[in-house]
Amino acid sequence: MTLDDLSDDVQAQYSELGEELAVSLDRETRNELAMLTSALDPDDPDELVRRAVHMLFQSAVETGNLDFHLRSGYDCTYDEYLSGMTFDEMTGADQFPQAQEKDDRRYQF
């Protein structure tokens, strides 16, 4: 898959998500959300869920976990996605391919 495939998939997922998302909670998640709601006292528990998504996303970016999964599935990184071009396109390496000849003569005297 490519950078274009990733862009298409992100747009498709964005459209599918819409404005609201119904999420089922298991006991552990419900307990943790109740604790956070009590401690942080947000106007709406939905705000904590939004914050959690932001924190998970930031953590995945900072640790390289997002790039690992993007490279595995789409052969690109988050930076490449943001710029809209691959590293090879940015550096021009795809425009001027180098000969793949092995030149051992340069080490001979």
Score class of each variant (00 low, 15 high):
D46F: 02
F57R: 06
C76A: 11
L3R: 08
A12H: 07
G84R: 03
G64R: 10
Q13I: 02
F87Y: 11
G73E: 14
P42Y: 02
F109R: 15
V53P: 10
L40M: 15
L40R: 14
E47G: 05
H69E: 15
Y81D: 12
D5P: 00
T77K: 10
F109H: 12
H54R: 12
D43L: 09
E62L: 10
H54V: 00
T63C: 08
Q100N: 07
D41F: 04
S24G: 13
D44R: 08
D104R: 07
E47N: 10
S59P: 00
R50F: 03
E16H: 05
R51H: 06
Y74L: 05
Y14C: 07
L56A: 14
N65M: 11
C76E: 06
M55Q: 12
R51N: 10
M35C: 02
P97R: 09
E28V: 04
D46A: 15
L70R: 13
L36C: 05
R71V: 03
S15N: 10
P42G: 07
R106M: 01
R50W: 01
T37H: 14
F87M: 07
V10R: 14
Q100P: 02
S15L: 11
T86C: 12
D67S: 03
A34L: 07
N65T: 14
F109L: 11
S7A: 07
E89T: 00
F68H: 14
Q98C: 05
G84H: 01
L82F: 03
G73D: 11
S72H: 12
V49A: 15
V23T: 11
G18S: 11
Q95T: 04
Q108M: 05
Y74G: 05
Q95L: 14
D4Y: 02
D4T: 08
D103I: 01
G18P: 09
L3A: 07
D104W: 04
R50I: 03
R50A: 11
V61A: 10
L36W: 04
R51M: 07
P45L: 03
T29Y: 07
L21F: 08
E47W: 06
L36R: 12
E19W: 06
